[in-house]
Amino acid sequence: MAEAPPRRLGLGPPPGDAPRAELVALTAVQSEQGEAGGGGSPRRLGLLGSPLPPGAPLPGPGSGSGSACGQRSSAAHKRYRRLQNWVYNVLERPRGWAFVYHVFIFLLVFSCLVLSVLSTIQEHQELANECLLILEFVMIVVFGLEYIVRVWSAGCCCRYRGWQGRFRFARKPFCVIDFIVFVASVAVIAAGTQGNIFATSALRSMRFLQILRMVRMDRRGGTWKLLGSVVYAHSKELITAWYIGFLVLIFASFLVYLAEKDANSDFSSYADSLWWGTITLTTIGYGDKTPHTWLGRVLAAGFALLGISFFALPAGILGSGFALKVQEQHRQKHFEKRRMPAANLIQAAWRLYSTDMSRAYLTATWYYYDSILPSFRELALLFEHVQRARNGGLRPLEVRRAPVPDGAPSRYPPVATCHRPGSTSFCPGESSRMGIKDRIRMGSSQRRTGPSKQHLAPPTMPTSPSSEQVGEATSPTKVQKSWSFNDRTRFRASLRLKPRTSAEDAPSEEVA
């Protein structure tokens, strides 16, 4: 009796068929016929556990003709996506030579605008209408194809895939403007070719909807975003200037109206006075309405000098805001240009540092100066060695804690006790272990408590650290204090090793 083939788990290929790579489910599931010992083939499952149809090819690079078809379809799909992405970037994010197409579109729109203006002049109306009709045909074809291509290429973005995504893309403001202008152009052409009475009025009214094509030149909205950011950044200043200017306008108009309503027919109503105030304070000055009385002229002159300053403030605020924003954008561009080279330089330096163990090129690091100058660790070890030599091999803490019996001779020589300023008595072995921070803190506390006492003391002649007598400086308080830590004499004296002298005989010792 033939044995059933062993159940295979995992992703390994079956024996005897090495080139074939078959994806098997996580659990080997066989058909009921196979479990019962029949000759049925096992049921194939996909990666998600769903059964595959009987005629479906197995996924994998070596699955025969199905694999070749899959490779061809995958390559075609990649080319399709690449083309779609390229078209989308050309239309929505132009760079380099892609601006040539947008310059061509701008020339078409500008020519249409010029011809629309010439069509309103009686001398050039006939020729402009003929040229404009031909140009409209060209623009309908160009913009119609462009609109379709834009909607198709938007599928390269995830949020615009599918018919719902394309509809979302078509609802964008600039796409809506394109659609309105396209419909208006078709209506103008249809009305112009019919030759009816309505054609002339339709051409004159709907052609100027094509002015909206100038708005579509900035599809990404960079200028509007820049203007919005400047207004938002200086909103408080703008609101303040406009508010005060509006108050000056209504008060000036009302007072001039009261002064001129009886003697001047131009100011017969408050609305006429508001019109005069707006034209005057905005420095336009049509001259259609002028005050005639001396009181009205004085009020107009005073409020004009006051109001023009507030009406001119928004222009200066926006101008300075634009300058600052442009400078910030230039700085951001320079930062973006330098970020990648800086990151590459840091990575290269780290690779060199991690692979080169000698690091002989590091001549400006802490390790280099640590090898030249005595390190703080060596100074600490030197302090501890000196203290243990004086205390008979014991550390200062051990000397303080060691009990001394009554009447027993002390094995240590008597030492002079010292007192730290602002604290109780402490171990004499710690007097010379006072660090730089303690010395600086002690000097600052003395300056806070009594700076007036220092200038009363007789001035001391500054001497070099080499000429100081070591026996005289029994305490860190003898170090000359200065008002600034930048004094080199104080810094050098604080680094010197001060020996400890006994109370009975204080021989001067120098520590090399």
Rank of each mutant, 00 (worst) to 15 (best):
I284T: 05
Y270S: 02
Y147H: 10
R95L: 11
Q329P: 14
A259T: 06
G287D: 10
A28D: 13
P291S: 03
G321D: 08
L91P: 05
V326A: 12
R207H: 08
Y243S: 06
S309C: 14
G49S: 15
G307S: 05
Y101S: 01
H234D: 13
E237D: 06
H334Q: 09
M206R: 05
T193I: 13
E237V: 02
L313R: 15
W163G: 08
T282A: 05
G321A: 06
M1R: 02
G316C: 02
W224C: 00
L227P: 03
P291A: 08
R339G: 02
D262A: 04
T280K: 06
W276R: 00
D288N: 03
L212P: 09
I250N: 06
I244N: 03
V151A: 10
K261Q: 06
N264D: 09
L306Q: 05
H102R: 07
T283A: 02
H234P: 07
Y232D: 12
Y160C: 04
G165R: 04
H334D: 09
Y243F: 09
K333T: 15
S50C: 12
Y101D: 00
I279T: 10
D288E: 04
T280R: 07
G277V: 02
G285D: 02
R207L: 08
L249H: 00
F311C: 06
V138E: 07
R339S: 09
V186G: 06
K236N: 03
M217K: 00
G307A: 02
G221D: 05
G222D: 12
F311S: 04
L324V: 15
L91Q: 15
G64R: 15
D218H: 07
L324Q: 13
V87D: 10
V114M: 07
P291Q: 03
R207S: 15
R338G: 08
A259G: 01
M1I: 14
R338Q: 14
T293A: 04
R297G: 04
M217R: 06
S309F: 00
A312D: 02
W275R: 04
G192A: 10
Q84H: 06
G307R: 01
R166P: 09
F322I: 13
S201C: 11
S309Y: 11
G277R: 03
V186E: 06
L255R: 00
R331G: 00
Y80N: 13
R331Q: 09
S153Y: 12
Q84P: 14
R339W: 05
K261E: 05
A154G: 03
T280A: 09
I140N: 08
G228D: 05
T200M: 13
T293I: 02
G319A: 11
G165A: 09
Y101N: 06
T282K: 11
K337Q: 10
V230L: 08
W152S: 02
L306P: 15
L255Q: 04
G192V: 12
T290K: 10
A323T: 07
F303V: 05
W152C: 01
L306R: 02
G307D: 09
A342E: 06
D262V: 08
L274F: 15
A187D: 14
A233E: 15
G316S: 07
A300D: 01
A342T: 07
G162V: 04
W275G: 01
A323D: 15
A312T: 07
F169V: 08
P314S: 00
S265F: 07
G285C: 08
G296C: 00
L299R: 01
V248L: 09
F303Y: 02
S253P: 07
G321R: 13
S309T: 01
V298D: 00
A271D: 04
F246C: 09
A259P: 04
S273P: 00
Q332H: 14
D178G: 15
T282S: 14
L258P: 01
R72S: 11
A304P: 01
K289N: 06
F267I: 14
V215E: 01
L274H: 05
H334R: 08
A343D: 09
Y243C: 03
